[in-house]
């Protein structure tokens, strides 16, 4: 942001961190990269019963350039891997990645010629959600964990290019 490069780690930047992180963690714009059946479960998180809007993350952006969090929901195969990488590269900093479900996390039971054995082979991942598919509660738990993680960050940590 400019200011922090002048002041470094000081009272001013920690206050700034707090304000910025508070804004960031309650207003995630997410990019749902939905490839498989997990997407059906993912949708229920939006619906009224679980209502992800309570956490400020209900707004999906279908352009990676406007998104903060990349939700990789479902199996990613070798043919799709370069597309996922491209989507991630297009997102602006600061950005986070959530791996939704066991297939995105480790390939799941698709231990075969076609499937990427975990998206962390391609892009860095912040939060992993286990399950096949995960319960909506698990997704909300992951979201809260991501918020906690964002709250711990400093504006000095990220390298803005």
């Amino acid at each position: 942001m400019g200011l922090e490069t002048v002041f470094g780690h000081s009272y001013l930047t920690t206050r700034l961190d707090e304000a910025v992180n508070w804004g960031r963690k309650y207003s995630f714009f997410q990019y749902p990269f939905v490839t498989a059946c997990c997407g059906m479960e993912f949708m229920s998180v939006w619906a009224s019963t679980y209502d992800i809007a309570r956490f400020g993350a209900e707004y999906p952006r279908f352009s990676p350039r406007q998104a903060d969090v990349l939700f990789v929901v479902g199996t990613v195969n070798e043919k799709l891997a370069p597309v996922l990488k491209r989507v991630y590269d297009q997102m602006c900093e600061p950005k986070w990645v959530v791996s939704f479900g066991v297939c995105a996390t480790s390939g799941g039971f698709y231990d075969n010629y076609a499937t990427v054995q975990g998206i962390d082979k391609i892009i860095p991942v912040d939060i992993y959600i286990p399950g096949c598919p995960p319960r909506p509660e698990a997704v909300l738990d992951a979201l809260v964990k991501l918020q906690e993680k964002v709250a711990r960050e400093s504006v000095l940590d990220r390298k803005y290019k």
Binding site: E78, P82, K85, D111, N112, Y113
Partner: peptide, 13 residues
């Protein structure tokens, strides 16, 4: 075809 065979990842086209 080997069960565990993996091939090098391709670039985006």
């Amino acid at each position: 075809y080997p069960l565990k065979k993996r091939q090098p990842r391709i670039a985006h086209r």
